[in-house]
């Protein structure tokens, strides 16, 4: 799928105005370094929200706080109306079943084949599925990500782009209601980045998920974003449509877009 095709964003009727994720006054520090300072945002149901920002601005920390891989110092995070910070272990586990998280590195289990990687969450979360249903689900997601032949390969036998696709397959196999993408196109060549961006958009349209896409790749944002937030120095610097960002005269935004264009044209 090329970039022009991916510009067909999520249909407005899926965005109900109801928040899938609501973050208020989030703060997170590591030692003396304040990474997030009073971050507030809303991700609507059925929406693709792109969080832009340079490296080290706290974008990944924000995503990890949403699934409580990191505990914030203060502030509240509500996912589908549930306050993540107040959930007990069981509640958190139940909430995480509704969330798909694509890690920057892909995080495929090295010691398992692609099939085992995909089976792993299924066998633990959807325990009532028969072997036949599991096999069918695995083949379906592999076809969705365009890699039906990778079934019995080890992650080490896959290219960077293929690993990312399999990671996407592993997250969508549980039919999540919310997808968190942490730098989905980092380390990939422009063509593969476009494919992954198209895949993200495709998933959103097919599964009607809400997606938070953390990236510094403008092309990825262009292909996937309904709305964009720019994080800078641990704070929300600007929020709006991507077109507004591109027209902005804010020196920070201009500099970010200029350097990002430079990178993408290399």
């Amino acid at each position: 799928m090329n970039r022009a095709q991916t510009e067909n964003k999520a249909s407005p009727e899926t965005k109900s105005g109801e928040a899938a994720v609501e973050i208020n006054d989030l703060k997170k520090s590591f030692g003396t370094q304040e990474v997030l300072k009073n971050v507030s945002l809303r991700l609507l149901k059925g929406e693709n929200l792109v969080v832009l920002g340079r490296s080290g601005m706290g974008k990944s920390v924000l995503a990890k706080c949403i699934v409580r891989l990191l505990n914030p110092d203060s502030g509240t995070i509500k996912v589908f109306g549930e306050n993540v910070g107040e959930l007990n272990r069981h509640g958190l586990s139940e909430l995480r079943k509704k969330i798909g998280f694509l890690f920057q590195s892909g995080a495929l289990y090295d010691s398992m084949t692609v099939r085992q990687n995909l089976e792993f969450p299924l066998r633990r979360i959807k325990k009532d599925l028969s072997k036949k249903e599991i096999d069918e689900k695995i083949m379906k997601v592999l076809e969705d990500v365009g890699l039906p032949d990778a079934l019995n390969k080890m992650p080490s036998q896959l290219s960077g782009g293929m690993r990312k696709r399999i990671s996407v397959a592993r997250t969508i196999i549980l039919d999540p209601m919310l997808m968190l993408y942490d730098e989905p196109t980092t380390g990939l060549d422009p063509a593969t980045s476009d494919e992954i961006s198209a895949l993200i958009d495709d998933i959103q349209r097919k599964l009607k998920t809400s997606s938070l896409i953390i990236t510094h790749d403008i092309e990825c944002a262009r292909a996937t974003a309904d709305r964009v937030i720019m994080l800078h120095d641990g704070e929300v610097h600007l929020e709006g449509k991507l077109e507004a960002f591109e027209k902005s005269a804010d020196p920070l935004i201009v500099s970010f877009f200029k350097s990002s264009h430079g990178q993408s044209h290399k």
Partner: peptide, 16 residues
């Protein structure tokens, strides 16, 4: 290496 490559985090996020 599982920690460095976020595989342990991935396990935790998938409710394992």
């Amino acid at each position: 290496s599982m920690k460095v490559t976020e595989q342990i985090d991935a396990m935790e996020v998938s409710s394992t």
